[in-house]
């Protein structure tokens, strides 16, 4: 069929717009559905109360605390290691078969299903290193899970810093390490933060790893060595065991809000950090 170019343009425009619209509709449907099912559950008692009768009643405070602890722990471990690896790969190695293998390894690792990380963490940290089900074992395993993402996004960000900025620093007498700390990293910061936020989001939302490594205790965790249940796991168990669908939706809604908040806070932080540079 032969169409005039203008007609083609219309069709293509329509098709692309329809795809975008479809995505948005699905997204808003999910958020709307969960909000309508879960909003009425969220009360102060739900947010700040202890769970009763396995979560059928009461609140979800311990799961909120556990979620915060475990994802902050994962980020705190994975960020320095990930950024350090990225700096090493970008600034201290030349492109070679070895760096390509490392990069391929990181990419492959990023694609490994999280349950395999969970099993690995269970065997290594929980059993072998005798940490038991604990926030520490969970945080370490989640750190392993998000490490490849942080390495690769940081690497992209560092490579995107124009080479001539480094040359300016060198030609003013800057050593390589000074150049990295004062020029490369500050300029790569927004990109690095993007990776960290992605990792944080994945940690908050993760279930398989956490069930394997941190357990599903509903008690308030008092130290890093205590087992705990995160919001995502709580949601899974409530729904899976048919304890309370509406409380599951309430938890899910909080989870979505939490991830939204993380993104907003990170965006504001990024804006503050880069304001002086613009």
């Amino acid at each position: 069929m032969i169409l005039r170019p203008l007609a083609w343009q219309r069709i293509v425009w329509f098709a692309l717009a329809a795809m975008t619209l479809f995505t948005l509709v699905v997204l808003f449907f999910i958020i709307g559905f969960i909000t309508s099912k879960g909003a009425h559950v969220i009360t102060l008692k739900f947010l700040f109360g202890m769970p009763e009768r396995m979560g059928k009643e009461g609140g979800i405070l311990p799961t909120i605390i556990a979620t915060i602890y475990i994802s902050l722990l994962a980020i705190a471990i994975a960020t320095p290691i990930g950024v350090g690896s990225a700096v090493y790969l970008c600034e201290y190695t030349r492109e070679s078969p070895i760096t390509r293998v490392i990069r391929f390894g990181a990419d492959a690792l990023a694609g490994v299903p999280s349950i395999i990380f969970g099993l690995f963490g269970f065997i290594l940290f929980v059993i072998r290193l005798r940490m038991g089900w604990s926030l520490l074992a969970g945080g370490l395993t989640l750190a392993f899970m998000i490490l490849p993402t942080i390495i690769r996004t940081s690497e992209e960000a560092i490579r995107a810093v124009p080479y001539n900025l480094r040359e300016v620093s060198y030609s003013l007498g800057g050593a390589k390490s000074q150049t990295i700390v004062r020029v490369v990293l500050p300029n790569a910061l927004p990109g690095i933060l993007t990776g960290v936020i992605l990792g944080m989001g994945r940690s908050v939302a993760e279930t398989a790893v956490v069930i394997f490594t941190a357990g599903s205790s509903l008690l308030m965790p008092k130290s890093l060595f205590d087992p705990a249940r995160t919001m995502a796991v709580h949601f899974y168990i409530l729904a899976r065991e048919g304890l309370s669908m509406e409380r599951a939706y309430g938890t899910a809604l909080l989870l979505i809000i939490a991830i939204l908040l993380i993104n907003v806070v990170a965006y504001l932080l990024m804006y503050r950090l880069t304001r002086k540079m613009r």
Binding site: E167, V168, L172, N187
Partner: peptide, 26 residues
């Protein structure tokens, strides 16, 4: 021996920070 490049390359940051960059390295 200083070097000025063909395209001016300000470091992202303030005017003050640009000039102070070298001295701060020391």
């Amino acid at each position: 021996v200083g070097l000025i490049f063909a395209t001016p390359v300000p470091l992202p940051g303030t005017i003050f920070d640009n000039i102070a960059y070298g001295p701060r390295l020391q």
